[in-house]
């Protein structure tokens, strides 16, 4: 049971993030929602590679042969880097939108529709 807690947290994080993106009207909050989903997915990846009582996957002078999986850590690291780029670009869009529209309310930012 105790090992399932991270997975429960993953699902909670993703649901919270999705709810933020769907229901919050502020563009900054939408960006935050995307970031929360991303944290959830990252946590999911890192949890997949976790093994109890194991060490970081560095072979030199390793105290035991039991190690966590290195691949999910590499994936997570890549995903975090991508996530930072995504967040930076989204926030800069939000700044520009505020300059042009004078608001961050997504209901008012719809010159493009139909």
């Amino acid at each position: 049971m105790i090992y399932n807690i991270p997975f429960i947290v993953v699902v909670l994080l993703i649901i919270v993030g999705l709810a933020t993106v769907v229901f919050k009207r502020n563009l900054i909050k939408i960006v935050i929602g995307i970031t929360i989903i991303e944290s959830g997915v990252n946590l999911f990846l890192i949890t997949l590679g976790y093994r109890e009582n194991s060490v970081a996957p560095i072979y030199t002078f390793a105290p035991s042969t039991k190690m966590v999986l290195p691949v999910p850590q590499a994936l997570t690291l890549t995903s975090i880097v991508i996530g930072v780029a995504v967040m930076a670009l989204m926030l800069s869009f939000a700044i520009r939108i505020y300059q042009h529209y004078g608001t961050l309310d997504s209901r008012k930012i719809r010159r493009l529709r139909e």
Partner: peptide, 18 residues
């Protein structure tokens, strides 16, 4: 109906996806 669906609000786009 189509005009009602195409609101142009980004939240609705995500809602359709979900």
């Amino acid at each position: 109906i189509m005009k009602k669906i195409h609101t142009g609000v980004v939240n609705d786009y995500v809602a359709w996806f979900l």
